Simulated scan of single mutants.
Amino acid sequence: MRDNWYKSDLEKTRLDQAGVDESVVDAAVGAFILEAIAKHGHPTKVLCNKDPLTLKHGAYMTQLFPKSKWLFMIRDGRAVVHSVVTRKVTITGYQLDNPRQCLEKWNTVITNMDKQCQEIGPERCMVVYYEQLVLHPERWMTIILDFLDLPWDSSVLHHQDFINKKGDSGIRVSMKERSSDQIVKPINIEALTQWVGFYSQDVLNDMAEIAPMLSTFGYDPELNPPNYGQPDGQVVNNTNEVQKNKDFWEIRAKQLVAQMEKRD
């Protein structure tokens, strides 16, 4: 809404003349965002928003919330688009029937987010690679919590134990969230390479030109399948457990959906 107002010089002039200058608009936007985040969960000292596209407005949001810190989560764009398309995640501007266009859109969005993170600065915006977080969760969660000035808690390595659990420690998830069937599982590497075999050969041949930010972030656009590194032992065990007990996890995901439907 704010962006739409300020795209028009006439609208901005009208607001200014009515006494609704930028300081008033910023206060209103900040209050709206704060209420939305603070009131949708249990009271807590630290508020968190995980919408990955929030960083598109990172520099402005940092002005509104001067104590905020940011995690710029980067994932292989080929895996991102595969997830968006196969899970039918509706995002404005993405043509889900056109993987090439989605990759180009990802490249544009991630370029802007990278610019925003650099503008915010490394003291308040830290880059985290999704693949490395999955492969080495304890190492990276230690780094992340230290960056956020939060104490270490081993529960961050066992998120699946808190899904829809009652009380302040429970993690409320939405049945509308496309990845809800995944988060019931312990940290595993299944999702890292599911995109392999998804793209047509012409898209693979043009990958470096379609999504140059892959190379910028250290991904080899020609390496298929990719090599993200070796997982920690516990992650290997988790992955083996998930693969050996597919029926169990499928039932667990259905139970989660049933819980959410009953709650809603």
Results as ranks from 00 to 15, higher is better:
Q101K: 10
Q95N: 15
D206N: 03
V24S: 11
V127I: 09
R100C: 05
I183W: 02
I74Q: 05
Y219I: 04
R124C: 05
V80W: 09
G93Q: 04
N107W: 01
F162Y: 14
R78I: 10
H40A: 15
W152P: 08
K12W: 00
G197V: 01
T239L: 00
F65D: 04
L204E: 13
D264S: 02
H159Y: 14
E131N: 10
M113K: 01
M1G: 06
D153V: 10
N245K: 10
R78W: 06
T239H: 00
R124H: 08
D21Q: 08
I143G: 03
Q194M: 07
V184L: 02
W140K: 12
A31P: 05
G229Y: 07
K45E: 12
L192E: 00
Q201E: 12
A258L: 11
L148Q: 03
Q118M: 00
F72N: 03
G218W: 02
D9Q: 07
L150K: 06
K39V: 15
L53H: 09
Q132Y: 13
E104N: 01
Q132L: 14
K254G: 14
W106T: 06
A27G: 12
V46D: 00
V127E: 12
G93F: 02
H57F: 08
Q160W: 10
W249D: 09
N237P: 13
A208W: 02
K254T: 13
F147M: 06
I144H: 02
D97E: 15
M126C: 03
W195H: 07
V173C: 09
G41I: 08
T62F: 04
H136G: 10
D232A: 14
K56A: 10
A18Q: 11
V236W: 03
R78L: 06
V29E: 06
I183N: 00
Q243C: 11
T108F: 04
V134K: 12
V127H: 05
W152K: 08
Q230H: 15
H158S: 14
G218R: 03
T13K: 11
S83V: 07
D21E: 04
L135M: 13
V173N: 05
K115W: 00
F217M: 06
P225G: 01
Q118V: 03
P99T: 11
V84L: 14
N188D: 07
E177V: 11
K88F: 13
R75K: 06
P225Q: 01
E138D: 14
S154M: 12
E177T: 12
T108P: 07
T142S: 10
D232C: 11
N205W: 05
P221M: 05
G93P: 01
E35C: 11
K165F: 04
S200T: 12
E138Q: 14
K246A: 14
P99S: 09
G197E: 01
R75L: 01
F248Y: 15
V46N: 01
V25M: 09
V203P: 00
C48S: 07
K246M: 10
E131A: 12
E22L: 13
P43K: 11
L148K: 03
A258N: 12
D220M: 04
S68M: 08
H40R: 14
